[in-house]
Nucleic acid binder design. Structure first.
Lengths: 332, 332
DNA sequence: GCTATAAATGAAAGCGCTTACATTAATACT
DNA sequence: AGTATTAATGTAAGCGCTTTCATTTATAGC
């Protein structure tokens, strides 16, 4: 592999000049540039990105930490991120945090140790304080799907409250009045926000959430099935169920089917996230769209702007969810 | 950030010695090692991985190219890969090829330019010749889900023929005799192999595939729905349908439902891949398990062995698919 | 044509490590 | 004790670039 030195020799210029035409950050006479470019082509020269990084103190790599690499949600997010960076010639180092405190912290350390120029974090287990401390360090980062007021400018998040509101309002508009709710773990902000939206929609209809029709799930399929069973056992009737995410909605639907409950005829169900498989369930799940891919892309843009001084596109920090009406909700 | 130089000064040893305790590739007296370790701890020293890479000509990074970052399939694969490398302190650079020739080639160039020590490729559009040429270059790589005889030692693939065989045999064992087939694009090896397996199973029952009951799909949902409609239009009857992947099976099931066909009572359906959502369909999809996560992990091991001289675990190159029997197939 | 200023280029010092080679310290053997 | 080995450590030359600062070359102004 040819080095910059050989290029400079062949072109009859100094190392510095070759470097200049590569980075074109300093004016170079057109004729000189030509010579250098020709020499590069002739030698099939490719700059050594490691050496560039060492000398410039820029790795051109961005660390991304997500909870899981698989699953419908994170894939979409990574797609948005990667596409944006690839176009900019930056590369993405990924790692998984598995929603576990130690693993997330390790992951962040790992990425820092790889000299990432910036980090995009989708962390759940790590505390606000930890992130605040991290913000005081030199590695810049953006938070996806998390809102910490003190560092709001580094947060890209969804208006979860609005999504919760939209889901329940949809049900109310379809005539439902007795609406059960299966929440996510209430220690998670997004779970709480979604529930608050639910309450707000109810309030608009002069209703309040019935504690008996509330179940705290775990955002996983079994949370939905167990939730539905538990809800049914209370003896309280309800004509609709909103689940705080699609996995739980799917679990609830499956459980309902096993109990001989017809969906949506006997029970309308709303999901949340609009994850890929929401389209594959039967009936097709009505849900709230979470524009996660766009949000990933926006996180990438944030980095491009703040870290690499790209200008252009404004960064949107708060995203709006949207109602996706499919077949799991019936008017009553 | 402290450098190796400061550590060496504090510990009262030379740079080389510090380097030695870091890499422990050369014996260092225990007392010296202690001093160095203490100094490191005291300074909160973290080696600069870029500098290490430049000096050692090893980037400790592995490039991974997959068709898509989202989707049920690749996520599982990435999980397997990342977990293995993370444990080894290597990091993974990912990029997407989108099953497109130019994008795949670009992606490979991109990864090479990032000084990856090795590449793990899941490529579809790029030709065998291209890969053969790549094999002649210096960057080592493994191919996932592709088999090229001339470089068989770098290929990790599934016995697709066996999977096709298992799917159809399952149907035959359940008493089905008229079996329709929706294939993937027949220019893809895996699509062809799966179909050959189908034929072999039929042959064992003294049957041959009826061309009228064959449809070439595209591995996507619409391929399944269009396939089923087309198959139905021929007027030929069939009691079972095997689809060359789960997406198409899901499309076929949805189309069937819209046409008032009961699954599995009136038509048994087999999928292929055992992708995450196969569990969320209704009825739950009987399918062929593709151990893609394990295969990703194995690709990582290949790299660890061949490139980083890890010993231990043998690398398994050909994987066996397995039948997953769920609810979309009924005995007749 | 000569100086003042601006534009283009070059020289060389790092960036923070690894590693071949040289040197010194420790151990073994007579 | 003195030499031969072996083990442990140090010295210093890179790895392939970027970038500051100095120098040279071109342009302008008189």
């Amino acid at each position: 592999m040819a080095t910059i030195y050989e290029v400079s020799k062949l072109a009859g210029v100094s190392l510095a000049t070759v470097s200049r035409v590569m980075n074109n950050n300093t004016p170079v006479k057109e004729s000189t540039r030509r010579k250098v470019l020709d020499a590069m082509a002739q030698l099939d020269y490719r700059p050594n990105s490691i050496a560039q990084s060492l000398a410039s103190n820029r790795s051109n790599s961005i660390g991304v930490l997500v909870s899981e690499l698989h699953g419908p949600f994170y894939g979409a997010m990574l797609t948005g991120i990667e596409a944006e960076f690839r176009a900019a010639g930056k590369h993405v180092i990924i790692t998984a945090g598995h929603s576990d405190l130690a693993t997330e912290q390790d992951g962040i350390e790992f990425l820092k140790s790889r000299n990432c120029d910036a980090l995009i974090l989708h962390v759940e287990a790590v505390s606000d304080d930890y992130l605040l401390a991290l913000a005081a360090e030199e590695t810049p980062f953006v938070l996806l799907n998390r809102h910490i007021p003190a560092i709001a400018d580094r947060c890209i998040s969804l208006n979860n409250e609005l999504g919760g509101y939209l889901a329940t309002r949809h049900l109310l508009q379809q005539g439902h009045r007795k609406i059960a709710y299966i929440a996510g773990p209430m220690w998670k902000t997004d779970a709480r926000d979604r529930y608050h939206g639910h309450q707000r929609a109810l309030a608009e209809y002069q209703l309040t959430a019935d504690p008996a029709l509330f179940f705290e799930g775990d955002f996983r399929e079994t949370g939905g099935s167990k939730g539905l069973e538990s809800l049914l056992k209370t003896g309280k009737t309800f004509s609709a169920l909103v689940c705080a995410n699609d996995e739980m909605a799917s679990g609830a639907i499956t459980a309902a089917r096993e109990l001989g409950l017809n969906i949506p005829q006997q029970l309308s169900v709303m999901g949340y996230d609009n994850v890929n498989f929401a389209y594959y369930t039967y009936p097709k799940l009505s849900t709230i769209d979470y524009p996660i891919s766009a949000m990933g892309q926006m996180a990438a843009r944030w980095v491009l702007r703040e870290v690499y001084q790209y200008d252009g596109n404004e960064v949107q920090q708060v995203f709006e969810p949207a109602l996706i009406s499919r077949d799991s909700v019936l008017a009553v």
